[in-house]
Amino acid sequence: MEQNTLPIEIIVKLAAKTGLYFACVDGDYDKSEQEFIARYLDRLAEVGDVSDVRYMIEHATDVPVSMDELVGETRLLLNSLPTPADRQAVTWALYRFIDKVIHVDGVVREPEREAFETWINSLLT
């Protein structure tokens, strides 16, 4: 099951899409979206040059992201990892990330819960 790991651009973008999708699933978070993107880029910049991905991340959600697209790219990412342990660990990280996003305002609303369940179940099927 050895496969090539996806390019970092795809991973960075997927993380941005995932955060934005679940942050926006129950409403409009334009300002917060920008804040999230800015902080995200800053965090990445702490590690290295993100000029190549800055535009891409900033416009990651210009077109609304669908759950199918999100799940598809997540599967692509997981399947690109070389070992089951890798897939589990990355899924776990994504799970915690999404869990944090939907809990960020202290309340898990029904659309958030449904979307989270859909995301999880989609990885099973």
Binding site: I11, A15, A16, F36, I37, R43, V90, R96, F97, K100
Partner: peptide
Amino acid sequence: GVISVINMASESMT
């Protein structure tokens, strides 16, 4: 590396 990216995104949420 992937997890680090995800964690960065997670931390950037708040």
